[in-house]
Simulated assay, not measured.
Amino acid sequence: MDDLPPIRETIARHGLSASKALGQNFLLDEQLLNRIAALPGDLAGANVLEVGPGPGGLTRALLRAGAKVTAIEMDARCLPALEELSEAFPGQLTVIHGDAMKLDHGAIMGGAPFHVLSNLPYNVGTALFVKWLSGENWPPQWLSLTLMFQREVAERIVSKENTSAYGRLAVLAQWRSSAKLAMKVHRSAFTPPPKVMSAIVHVTPADAPEGVPARTLERLTEAAFGQRRKMLRQSLKGVPGACEALSSLGIDETRRAETLSVAEFVALARTLNTLR
């Protein structure tokens, strides 16, 4: 590692610049990157998936921590810099040139458990997060998610009911996982500095409630928060059986989605499943 130049020099030597179209913002502060890599705990010998490594700032910190990293990078310009890292850490880094949204992450990781750490590209961050949280198979193959988001998105993920930030992301993140805001990151830490502040969310799987199909909960939250200003009797009228489920649980159908707790959404999904 000591033989590698600072990441800033690597960026300059390869003529790299953050692509707005790809939602890139490079992190260069090595102390900050080391702190991020430490959030999941000891990564020595652990499998780690990183999406959008760019020139490899966080990748260096993960490799330095002893992780075995699989990095998915869409930007071909960054591949030579990542190849240098692969040579500097023999056997620790695998780079895949492709679109993370179109790839089977479990298959890429060979069926083994893995951690996800990523300074997610802003333009696909939320979609990837939902992808990792979705699906009937639980517990998931991933052991933890440590992800950089715009602060506004991070706050939505960890928010509670009866707040303006509370919505579908919060329910999906919290009904069978534990989500916390692990670190706030100032915009000045990035090159170029984004217009918004950022934050890191750390998510670990929890026990899934019994009798609650993930797809049912996903449909409920999509409908309820898709028309969040409307009463539940209106926003959920397109979900067969939803109004009957509300009634059986004693949930006032004139309430709005943001007033329902995660536990109430889970109960609603379970009841809806039994009514079918």
Rank of each mutant, 00 (worst) to 15 (best):
S159T: 05
L236A: 02
G167T: 01
S247E: 15
T191S: 15
A223S: 09
L260C: 05
V266C: 07
I200P: 10
A199L: 11
N162D: 14
L169Y: 01
S177F: 08
T254N: 15
R229I: 05
G226L: 02
T216I: 12
A208S: 12
L272C: 08
E244R: 15
L268P: 04
A245H: 04
P192M: 09
D252T: 09
A245S: 09
A179G: 00
K195Y: 11
A223W: 03
A189D: 11
R229V: 04
E218V: 11
E253S: 13
E161A: 08
K184Y: 12
A206N: 10
T221G: 01
P205I: 01
M183R: 06
V212H: 03
S235L: 05
A189T: 06
Q234P: 08
V171W: 00
L169S: 03
I200E: 09
T221E: 03
L236I: 04
S177L: 07
T259M: 10
V239N: 00
K180S: 15
V239E: 09
S261V: 05
V171T: 01
A208E: 12
S198D: 12
S198C: 15
A214M: 12
A179C: 03
V203W: 05
P240A: 07
R256I: 02
Q234Y: 14
A199R: 08
M183C: 08
W175T: 04
A214E: 12
P209H: 03
A170P: 02
P194T: 11
A208F: 04
